[in-house]
Design a protein around this nucleic acid. Structure first.
Lengths: 118, 118
DNA sequence: CGGTATCCTTTCGGATACTG
DNA sequence: CAGTATCCGAAAGGATACCG
């Protein structure tokens, strides 16, 4: 939309399809994850989408990428940056708000969600 | 997208165009605001969009509507509910995160933003 | 005033194929 | 393996007109 307000800018890219899922996928488990590894963990995503979203997140400084070109095939891995990890806290707050105020009966409420693992 | 995860569900509707702007518009100033009053404060929005978004937000329990049908023209007013107001806190946290981690030089950082007023 | 209805444009994302 | 290129369909949103 092209905003000047920080809040709108931030939500604009966080809100895109797959973005949150990718962030949470990178948040769980191991530090560095390979492209295909991320892709396989999100059954429905296309390489095009994953590629686009990772590029955006890298530009926003939430994700970093390291490439080992000496090996073949090239090994490319991603992880959350510091800011990226800190954002998870805010997302967790959002979840707490939702569970407190809106969700009446959800498996999400009884336990840590298996999907977002928050 | 049709998620089962609380977090995704929540972001799915918060992320729609105009939604955040409407919430913040209702957050500032007076308690109850009329349809046209909201519309005029957001120069670019069409009545269709405002109507759709308000309906969604009402369904989600973030906004409530009262109608005075005895007057003519009918007087219809909106305001944030309790949960709606609490959400503003989370949005504020998101802003703080963005200013701390991402925004280098923004008028937003020096003062409360004139747009989101957070 | 407070919306709906209709139509139309634009954007987004999916499917698929291909490449170094 | 880690993507990119191309094409296409669905859906979101804008413009405009109209109505109780």
């Amino acid at each position: 939309m092209d905003h000047e307000c920080t809040v709108y800018k931030t939500v604009d890219y966080l809100a895109k399809k797959w973005t949150l899922m990718i962030l949470l996928e990178l948040y769980k488990g191991k530090e560095w994850k390979r492209f295909t590894e991320i892709k396989n963990s999100m059954k429905e995503i296309t390489p095009k989408m994953l590629s686009e979203r990772l590029a955006e997140l890298e530009m926003e400084g939430l994700v970093e990428n390291r490439i080992d070109a000496s090996s073949f095939p090239v090994r490319s891995e991603y992880r959350l940056t510091g800011p990226g990890t800190e954002l998870i806290t805010v997302i967790h707050d959002l979840k707490k708000w939702a569970l407190k105020n809106k969700i009446v009966n959800s498996t999400c409420a009884n336990q840590d969600c298996k999907i977002c693992i928050l």
